[in-house]
Computed example of a mutant assay.
Amino acid sequence: MFAVVRTGGKQYRVAAGDKIAVEKLAGEAGDKITLGEVLLAGDGGEIKDAAGVLVSAEIIAQAKSEKVIVFKKRRRHNYRRRNGHRQQMTLLRILSVGAEEKKAAKKEAAPKAEAATATAADAPAKKAPAKKAAKAADAE
Rank of each mutant, 00 (worst) to 15 (best):
T119I: 14
S65Y: 04
A137Y: 10
K107T: 14
Q87T: 09
K64R: 15
G44C: 03
Q62S: 09
R74S: 10
A130T: 05
M89E: 15
V55W: 03
K102D: 07
H85Y: 13
E28R: 04
A41D: 03
A118I: 04
I20V: 13
A136N: 10
R75S: 15
A136P: 02
A51E: 13
K135R: 12
E108K: 06
A133Y: 09
N83E: 15
D138A: 15
A104S: 14
K67A: 07
Q11N: 12
R82P: 01
A16V: 06
L92C: 06
G84A: 08
G52I: 10
R76I: 03
I59M: 02
H77G: 04
R81D: 08
R93L: 08
A128M: 11
R86T: 09
Q87A: 12
D138I: 03
L40V: 15
A120M: 10
S96N: 13
R80L: 08
E101M: 05
K24D: 04
A15K: 10
V38K: 04
V53H: 01
T90K: 00
L54P: 00
D122F: 04
E114F: 13
V97F: 07
D18H: 09
G44D: 00
Q88C: 01
G27E: 04
A104L: 12
A133P: 04
S56P: 05
V68M: 07
E28I: 02
A26N: 12
K24G: 02
G36L: 11
M1T: 12
A50N: 12
K73S: 14
A109F: 12
Y79I: 08
A99K: 13
P111R: 03
K32Q: 13
G84T: 09
K131D: 13
D138L: 14
V38M: 05
I69K: 08
K72P: 01
G9L: 06
K112H: 13
K10W: 05
A50P: 15
A3S: 09
M1V: 10
V5W: 03
